[in-house]
Amino acid sequence: MATEHVSHIKPYSPQFGVMIPLGFQKFLRTCVIYQLFRFIAINIRMTVLILKSHH
């Protein structure tokens, strides 16, 4: 149930106005196949960043 991810939030608390990940987002974070693709993406991103930063 998606509500389990938000059940600890109190109405009108500072946490009430915040973006909270639900089940599918959380699943993706530890889904090895999806994360393998993300791993490649992060490495590419960091390589580009390093290349841009050297002067």
Binding site: R29, T30, Q35, R38, I42, M46
Partner: peptide, 13 residues
């Protein structure tokens, strides 16, 4: 060039 994400992949990095 500005990004943020959460997951296992970042952890492996």
């Amino acid at each position: 060039g500005t990004s943020g994400e959460l997951g296992l992949a970042a952890h492996w990095v």
